[in-house]
Protein backbone atom coordinates (compact mmCIF):
# COMPACT_ATOMS: atom_id res chain seq x y z
CA UNK A 1 0.00 0.00 0.00
CA UNK A 2 1.40 3.34 -1.01
CA UNK A 3 0.21 6.92 -0.90
CA UNK A 4 -0.23 8.52 -4.29
CA UNK A 5 -1.19 12.04 -5.23
CA UNK A 6 -3.90 12.14 -7.88
CA UNK A 7 -5.57 15.40 -8.95
CA UNK A 8 -3.95 17.18 -6.01
CA UNK A 9 -5.27 14.74 -3.42
CA UNK A 10 -3.23 12.12 -1.60
CA UNK A 11 -4.91 8.71 -1.63
CA UNK A 12 -3.95 5.15 -0.73
CA UNK A 13 -3.47 2.74 -3.64
CA UNK A 14 -2.49 -0.95 -3.69
CA UNK A 15 0.33 -2.50 -5.73
CA UNK A 16 -1.94 -2.78 -8.79
CA UNK A 17 -2.84 0.90 -8.70
CA UNK A 18 -6.37 0.45 -7.35
CA UNK A 19 -7.54 2.86 -4.68
CA UNK A 20 -8.12 1.08 -1.39
CA UNK A 21 -10.54 3.54 0.20
CA UNK A 22 -13.51 4.38 -2.04
CA UNK A 23 -14.36 7.31 0.23
CA UNK A 24 -11.19 9.12 -0.85
CA UNK A 25 -12.44 9.12 -4.47
CA UNK A 26 -13.50 12.32 -6.21
CA UNK A 27 -14.67 13.03 -9.75
CA UNK A 28 -11.39 14.85 -10.41
CA UNK A 29 -9.49 11.71 -9.43
CA UNK A 30 -11.62 9.71 -11.89
CA UNK A 31 -10.68 12.11 -14.70
CA UNK A 32 -6.96 11.73 -13.88
CA UNK A 33 -7.02 7.92 -13.64
CA UNK A 34 -8.99 7.77 -16.90
CA UNK A 35 -6.18 9.70 -18.60
CA UNK A 36 -3.65 7.18 -17.19
CA UNK A 37 -5.84 4.45 -18.68
CA UNK A 38 -5.79 6.09 -22.10
CA UNK A 39 -9.24 7.70 -21.97
CA UNK A 40 -8.66 11.42 -22.63
CA UNK A 41 -12.16 12.59 -21.80
CA UNK A 42 -14.99 11.16 -19.73
CA UNK A 43 -18.32 11.59 -21.52
CA UNK A 44 -21.84 11.35 -20.10
CA UNK A 45 -21.87 7.66 -21.11
CA UNK A 46 -18.65 7.04 -19.18
CA UNK A 47 -20.14 8.74 -16.12
CA UNK A 48 -23.30 6.69 -16.37
CA UNK A 49 -21.15 3.58 -15.95
CA UNK A 50 -18.85 5.04 -13.30
CA UNK A 51 -21.80 6.28 -11.24
CA UNK A 52 -23.50 2.90 -11.50
CA UNK A 53 -20.33 1.19 -10.22
CA UNK A 54 -20.03 3.62 -7.33
CA UNK A 55 -23.65 3.01 -6.44
CA UNK A 56 -23.39 -0.79 -6.76
CA UNK A 57 -20.25 -0.87 -4.64
CA UNK A 58 -21.95 1.37 -2.09
CA UNK A 59 -24.60 -1.26 -1.44
CA UNK A 60 -22.64 -4.49 -1.99
CA UNK A 61 -19.14 -3.30 -1.07
CA UNK A 62 -17.79 -4.90 -4.28
CA UNK A 63 -16.99 -3.54 -7.71
CA UNK A 64 -19.63 -4.89 -10.11
CA UNK A 65 -18.70 -7.34 -12.86
CA UNK A 66 -19.02 -6.36 -16.53
CA UNK A 67 -22.29 -8.22 -16.91
CA UNK A 68 -23.70 -6.54 -13.83
CA UNK A 69 -22.72 -3.22 -15.41
CA UNK A 70 -24.40 -3.96 -18.74
CA UNK A 71 -27.60 -5.29 -17.17
CA UNK A 72 -27.65 -2.52 -14.55
CA UNK A 73 -27.06 0.44 -16.87
CA UNK A 74 -28.56 -0.80 -20.13
CA UNK A 75 -25.25 0.01 -21.86
CA UNK A 76 -24.51 -2.75 -24.41
CA UNK A 77 -21.44 -4.96 -24.21
CA UNK A 78 -20.22 -3.45 -27.48
CA UNK A 79 -20.54 0.10 -26.16
CA UNK A 80 -18.94 -0.81 -22.83
CA UNK A 81 -15.89 -2.21 -24.63
CA UNK A 82 -15.78 0.83 -26.93
CA UNK A 83 -16.00 3.32 -24.04
CA UNK A 84 -13.28 1.56 -22.02
CA UNK A 85 -11.15 -0.10 -24.69
CA UNK A 86 -8.66 -2.88 -24.00
CA UNK A 87 -9.86 -4.36 -20.76
CA UNK A 88 -12.90 -2.59 -19.29
CA UNK A 89 -13.05 -4.85 -16.21
CA UNK A 90 -10.07 -3.33 -14.44
CA UNK A 91 -10.29 0.09 -16.10
CA UNK A 92 -13.81 0.85 -14.96
CA UNK A 93 -13.09 -0.32 -11.41
CA UNK A 94 -9.87 1.71 -11.19
CA UNK A 95 -11.49 4.87 -12.52
CA UNK A 96 -14.41 4.43 -10.12
CA UNK A 97 -11.98 4.17 -7.20
CA UNK A 98 -12.95 0.58 -6.43
CA UNK A 99 -11.06 -2.71 -6.13
CA UNK A 100 -10.86 -5.31 -8.88
CA UNK A 101 -14.29 -6.72 -9.69
CA UNK A 102 -15.10 -9.91 -7.81
CA UNK A 103 -16.95 -12.57 -9.78
CA UNK A 104 -16.40 -14.25 -13.10
CA UNK A 105 -19.22 -12.99 -15.31
Amino acid sequence: MVAKTIAGKTVEVNEDGFMTNPNEWTEEIAVEIAKEEGIPELTAEHWKIINFCRQAAGTSGKAPTLRQITTGTGVSTKDLFALFPKGPAKKVARIAGLGKPEGCV
Binding site: L66, F81, P85, G87, P88, A89, K90, P101, C104, V105
Partner: peptide
Amino acid sequence: LVMGWAALGNGI
Protein backbone atom coordinates in the same frame (compact mmCIF):
# COMPACT_ATOMS: atom_id res chain seq x y z
CA LEU B 1 -16.83 -18.80 -22.30
CA VAL B 2 -15.87 -17.95 -18.72
CA MET B 3 -12.13 -17.67 -19.37
CA GLY B 4 -12.64 -15.93 -22.71
CA TRP B 5 -14.87 -13.33 -21.10
CA ALA B 6 -12.34 -12.79 -18.31
CA ALA B 7 -9.58 -12.40 -20.91
CA LEU B 8 -11.56 -9.84 -22.92
CA GLY B 9 -12.31 -7.92 -19.74
CA ASN B 10 -8.58 -7.75 -19.11
CA GLY B 11 -7.79 -6.51 -22.60
CA ILE B 12 -6.49 -9.82 -23.97
